[in-house]
Computed example of a mutant assay.
Amino acid sequence: MDKKYTIKDIAALAGVSKGTVDRVLHKRGKVSETALVKVNNVLDEIDYQPNPMAKNLRINKVFKLFVLIPNVGKDSFWLPCKDGIQEFEDAYKGFGIKVENYFFDPASTASFLETARGMIALQPDAILTVPIFAKEAHVIVKECYEAGIKVSIFNNFIASDYVHNFIGQDLYQSGRVAANLLHMLLKKGHIGIIHIDEESRNATHLQEKEKGFRNYFSGLKSDNYQISTLSISHKDPVKFKATLLEFLDENENLEAMFVTISKSHLVADAIKDRKQRQLIVGYDLVDKNVHYLKNGGVNFLINQKPKEQVTLALNYLAEYFLFDKPIPSEVLLPIVIVNAESVDGYLV
Rank of each mutant, 00 (worst) to 15 (best):
V163W: 09
G73M: 06
Q49K: 14
L301F: 09
F154C: 08
G219L: 06
K18E: 14
D105R: 00
L79K: 07
F88W: 02
A126P: 11
F166C: 11
S228G: 06
N71K: 08
M119P: 05
F321L: 06
I158C: 04
A203I: 06
Q173F: 12
N41R: 12
K272S: 12
H26A: 08
V31P: 09
L266M: 15
D324Q: 12
I194H: 05
A137N: 06
I196G: 01
V151D: 01
G282R: 10
D324W: 11
V39A: 12
D161N: 15
E252G: 13
D269G: 04
D90T: 08
N315D: 13
L181A: 10
A318E: 02
D44Q: 13
I302H: 00
E100L: 13
N289M: 11
K98G: 08
G148S: 04
L347K: 05
F77C: 00
E33F: 01
H291N: 11
Q49A: 08
I140P: 05
I85F: 07
Q226H: 03
K61E: 10
M1R: 07
N303T: 00
L186C: 11
V259P: 01
D287K: 12
Y102F: 14
D223P: 02
L128P: 09
F133E: 01
N41H: 06
V259I: 14
D170T: 01
A107L: 12
K263G: 03
L57A: 11
M184C: 07
P52E: 07
A147N: 14
V286W: 02
S342W: 00
K239T: 14
Y320G: 02
A110T: 15
R274E: 13
Y102T: 03
K187H: 06
L185N: 13
S231F: 06
F166T: 11
G189V: 09
D197G: 02
N253M: 09
Q123N: 15
H190A: 01
L185A: 15
I193R: 01
D287E: 14
H265T: 00
F240K: 10
E199H: 13
L248S: 04
A107Y: 12
G94K: 09
E250Y: 05
P334S: 00
F63A: 07
P106N: 14
G189H: 08
V338N: 02
P50F: 03
G192R: 08
A11D: 04
S222P: 02
Y92T: 13
A268C: 08
K294W: 00
A270S: 11
V310P: 01
A91I: 05
D284M: 09
I132C: 10
I59Y: 00
A313F: 02
V177N: 03
K4D: 06
I158L: 07
V281E: 06
E210K: 11
L254N: 10
G19V: 13
I10E: 01
E246C: 07
A134P: 00
G73T: 08
I196D: 01
V21D: 10
A14R: 03
G15V: 11
